[in-house]
């Protein structure tokens, strides 16, 4: 078995086993992986050199879709909720993206921010649909015919999330290695040449943008189920900043990076809450700056070692 696969198997086994030893880790790991999906979405765009300061909106859209469907329509099935959240977030992503991916650099970052702030404000103001600033409560979903207790569902959710991580991670890996994935990185290095090869940068980016929105929506749906509550703050711009931070901390070179970044952050958070709760932002702010200075390829780059000449992975 090749080395990366052994590492992957060991990592996933550890994540699956940790909650058996420490029960409250169920929540921590589920949330970490759920946010990892959103960070992966952000990482896809970073490969194209685009930094979104608004992706928390798709996370929120996914979370609110799940909460809304459960509260207002009585749909409680896990699979339907997850699928609906991904679809709604992807459609929103394609709709906004059609306009947003025409922009580059700072303008792309700022416009995503602006759209996300509109979504944030709507989440806080539309009491009838979103519950306003109180948000919406999320009950315990059902799984096909099974109506689980909260604790049993949480365990199911953990393993379902880990399963999704493996499946979507594999698909994401294939995507990055495909012509379309390489075209995405090519937008970053030379958009003019790409157009002269007959490839539309706009469609290449919109595809990636739709996928990234869908991934963030999935993360939002899973987080809503794990937390049991959704809030407008999910869409606030600082959350978007955190997603970018997570992706960069883990590394945007491969699909594993954002998940590693997210799990690392959540685990450190667990420790820090006990020791220095006041200084959490300070710690990750310093960590982020250190990563930018010393580890341009993120934690994943550290694990991967200095073998790469394939390029396209640094910031």
């Amino acid at each position: 078995m090749p080395k990366p696969l052994i590492g992957l198997a060991a990592g996933v086994a550890l994540l699956a086993a940790l909650p058996l030893a420490v029960p409250f880790m169920t929540f921590v790991v589920t949330l970490a992986v759920a946010k990892g999906f959103a960070a992966l979405g952000v990482a896809l765009l970073l490969r194209a050199g685009l930094i979104s300061l608004g992706h928390a909106m798709y996370f929120a859209i996914g979370a609110y879709t799940t909460a809304f469907l459960m509260q207002k329509t009585g749909i409680t099935d896990f699979a339907i909720l997850v699928a609906a959240s991904i679809i709604v977030a992807t459609l929103a992503g394609l709709a906004f993206g059609a306009f947003l991916v025409r922009y580059r650099a700072i303008f792309f970052a700022m416009l995503n921010l602006a759209v996300s702030m509109v979504i944030y404000a709507l989440c806080s103001k539309l009491y009838g649909v979103t519950g306003g600033t109180d948000g919406l409560r999320v009950g315990v979903p059902t799984v096909f015919a099974w109506v689980p207790e909260k604790a049993a569902f949480d365990t199911f959710l953990l393993y379902a999330t880990l399963g999704l991580m493996l499946v979507l991670g594999w698909l994401g890996h294939r995507y990055l290695k495909s012509p379309l994935g390489h075209a995405l990185a090519a937008v970053h290095t030379n958009e003019v040449r790409l157009e002269y090869l007959g490839v539309s940068a706009w469609s290449t980016l919109l595809t990636a943008y739709g996928i990234s929105a869908g991934l963030a929506g999935l993360g939002g749906a899973l987080s809503a189920m794990a937390i049991g509550h959704v809030l407008p703050e999910f869409a606030f711009w600082t959350e978007s900043g955190h997603l970018v931070l997570t992706a960069v901390l883990g590394g945007v070179g491969g699909v594993a990076g954002p998940f590693i970044g997210s799990i690392f952050l959540e685990l450190v958070h667990v420790v820090a809450v006990g020791v220095a709760a006041e200084a959490w932002n300070l710690i990750i702010g310093v960590a982020l700056i250190c990563v930018i200075f010393f580890l341009p390829r993120g934690l994943f780059g550290l694990i991967e070692g200095r073998r790469g000449k394939t390029g396209g992975t640094d910031l």
């Binding site: 930094i51 900043g241 970018v244 931070l245 702010g285 310093v286 982020l288 930018i292």
Partner: peptide, 15 residues
């Protein structure tokens, strides 16, 4: 790149 500039100042913002 802009990504580095935005991230650097975002780190500063958090601090």
């Amino acid at each position: 790149g802009e990504a580095v500039q935005i991230l650097m100042t975002f780190g500063l913002f958090l601090i």
